[in-house]
Design a protein around this nucleic acid. Structure first.
Length: 578
RNA sequence: CGGGCUGUAGCGCAGCUUGGCUAGCGCGCUUGACUGGGGGUCAAGAGGUCGCAGGUUCAAAUCCUGUCAGCCCGACCA
């Protein structure tokens, strides 16, 4: 391809709206343009990178015995009613109505396709002999993000590879899951991404039922805790913390329970400051409604409550923070002064709460806190639970060494679904004993755009992008420095023909521009191999060949150049081979 | 949905506080000349409903009200 024939609008200056490197560079290098918040057009360079990533994903999916289909973006709302996800998705699902003759049809743009695929399978698979089966597709997904952000990392329309496995047994599910897990590792390695598989919020099956694939990056939205010692990695929300403390009793050194007026101090920080103590000395008492019934959740003041863990500990279906009215009823005080002592609802506490000696807690009385609060004497617990998010100072749950906290961009998620969708959509099979069972499913997603954005975010320098050879929009960029020079262009055309016939993805910068402009653009768009053809080199009978990652070019004799380039490409690809 | 910020040429910005000449600057773009190895020089140009609507005023980019859009923080996110 000739630069003059394609569309690569590079920008010297950074658009003011872009804050994170991937967004800035993808705009400046002419990969994307914004249409509206959370919606982007992919320009030729961006699209080519996407297509390279897709090709790798496709290869690995086929390799893992998944077969490609294409489901529509237009889906009937009725299916989401049947699985209960019309409510679960809420405003995230893009719903609309169309008119056909006299009837109105309720549609939704597919946010993911569990319903559509399961419904289809339920009509065509009825025997254990037809299982297992894994289907996948790469199509646009639609989610009405309340707040799209971070450029192309979180958008309302995005490309996702989604796969669904159907099996007749747990063994089949586990096998499909493992194949996908392995395929994902191969995909991200081949794409040149450094990634971290982390334990994620688990599904109905529990255990190791869900993993997210994260790209460690400062601008990532997800929080991960990672143990450098044993390799344990988990989503912050999922990571286990603390252990049950068997000795729940009042310490000997307990001081007296004392009521202290704390006017205006209702937040943890305010109370700690007011009483000149640290937040870790406080008991945070959160009033929740679990399946509609109030419950007080005790967390150490400097810790963060984890609603998923609380819900599981209570065995509740729904959990939400109580409203002011309920709080007033249960505690007898406005929001901010709840405490475990004398509260009129059940208590549940995190492991780290009863070990606080002479704690500070709300007095269940307006503008008042208690000091010298101790378990056993002042409030009663029979057991404790893991109810909070991991904190960076927590020890690794596996090896007790230090955890580090990092941000990550989620690029993939594998999930053991179980029978949630097959049950509600009646995707049943008959086993060898003529018994009917719901199929056991798994689902597996990859954000294709995030592969590209993640690379842009993590692989760049001050001059621009640095593509890995495998997903680069082009493998080689030829820069004839003076397109008006006859010998330069003769050589360029000859090499162009030879490289093309050797199957090289080639971009030729044939613009009549200053060398500085071309070389700076070359660095910006980050094509991995650059070939400079200029007067200086021609006099010596050489071209200059440089990897984007190298600082100095190699001078290569004209008749050896093509071979040299082919070797380099193979070498670079070899580094990412699996 | 709460909080903050910003809308002036394709991009980056100044002007607004204190209303007043024909709305400016840099980059980019067009034409020509010179130039030709890291965003070159000179010359001549094109390009604007100052986000939109209403109001105040003799007069609005500037003040007021409303509205729309974008960005950031938070809440939310199968």
């Amino acid at each position: 391809m000739r630069w003059s024939k394609t569309f690569i609008p590079t920008m010297k200056e950074t658009p003011a709206d872009a804050e994170i490197p991937s967004h800035q560079l993808m705009l400046r290098a002419g990969l994307i343009r914004q249409v509206m918040a959370g919606v982007y057009t992919y320009l030729p360079l961006g699209l080519r990178a996407i297509q390279k990533a897709q090709a790798i994903v496709r290869e690995e999916m086929e390799n893992a015995d998944a077969v490609e289909i294409a489901m529509p973006s237009l889906t009937p709302q009725e299916l989401y009613h049947r699985t209960g996800r019309i409510a679960a998705f809420g405003n995230v699902l893009m719903k609309f109505e169309i008119t056909r003759k006299d009837s109105r049809v309720s549609l939704a743009l597919g946010p993911t396709h569990e319903e559509v695929v399961t419904d289809m399978i339920s009509r065509h698979i009825s025997s254990y002999r037809q299982l297992p089966l894994t289907l996948y597709q790469m199509t646009s997904k639609f989610r009405n993000e309340e707040r799209p952000r971070f450029g192309v990392l979180r958008t309302s329309e995005f490309l996702m590879k989604d796969a669904y496995s159907f099996g007749s047994s747990l063994e089949q599910l586990n096998e499909a899951y493992q194949k996908m897990y392995d395929a994902y590792c191969r995909i991200f390695t081949r794409c040149g991404l450094s990634y971290l598989p982390v334990e994620a919020e688990s599904g109905p099956i529990g255990g190791d039922a869900s993993h997210e694939f994260m790209i460690p990056a400062d601008n990532g939205e997800d929080h991960i805790v990672h143990c450098k010692n044993c390799g344990y990695a988990a989503n912050l929300e999922r990571a286990e913390t603390g252990r049950e403390n068997p000795e729940i009793q009042c310490p000997d050194l307990a001081s007296e329970l004392q009521e202290i007026p704390t006017p205006g101090a209702s937040s943890i920080d305010a109370v700690a400051k007011f009483l000149k103590t640290s937040p870790s000395q406080l008991i945070k008492t959160l009033i929740y409604q679990a399946d509609g019934k109030p419950v007080a959740v005790l967390i150490r003041g400097d810790h963060e409550a984890n609603e998923g863990k609380i819900r599981r500990a209570l065995g509740a279906m729904t959990l939400q923070l109580a409203d002011e009215k309920t709080i007033l009823e249960v505690t007898g005080a406005p929001v901010g002064f709840a405490g475990p002592v004398g509260i009129k609802c059940p208590l549940i506490a995190d492991h780290d709460v009863p070990v606080i000696q002479n704690a500070v807690a709300g007095a269940n009385k307006a503008e008042t806190h208690l000091t010298g609060v101790n378990v056993d004497r002042d409030y009663v617990l029979t057991t404790t639970h893991d109810l909070r998010n991991a904190a960076p100072e927590d020890p690794c749950p596996k090896c007790r060494q230090h955890l580090v906290s990092v941000h990550g961009i989620e690029v993939g998620h594998v999930f053991k679904l179980g029978t949630k969708y097959s049950t509600s959509l009646e995707a049943m099979f008959v086993d060898e004993h003529e018994q009917r069972h719901p199929m056991i499913m798994g689902c597996y997603g990859i954000g294709i755009n995030r592969i590209i954005a993640g690379l842009a975010e993590t692989c760049h320098d001050e001059k621009g992008l640095i593509w890995p050879m495998t997903v680069a929009p082009y493998e080689v960029l030829m820069c004839p420095l003076n397109v008006g020079d006859e010998p330069t262009m003769q050589l360029t055309c000859r090499m162009e023909a030879e490289l093309k016939s050797a199957g090289v993805d080639l971009l030729v910068d044939d613009r009549d521009a200053r060398p500085g402009v071309k070389l700076n653009d070359a660095d910006l768009i980050g094509i991995p191999l650059r070939v400079v053809i200029g007067g200086k080199g021609l006099k010596e009978g050489v071209v200059e060949i440089k990897l984007r990652t190298e600082s100095e070019p190699t001078k290569v004799k004209l008749d050896e150049a093509v071979g040299f380039i082919l070797d380099k490409i193979a070498q670079e690809k070899g580094k990412l081979a699996v």
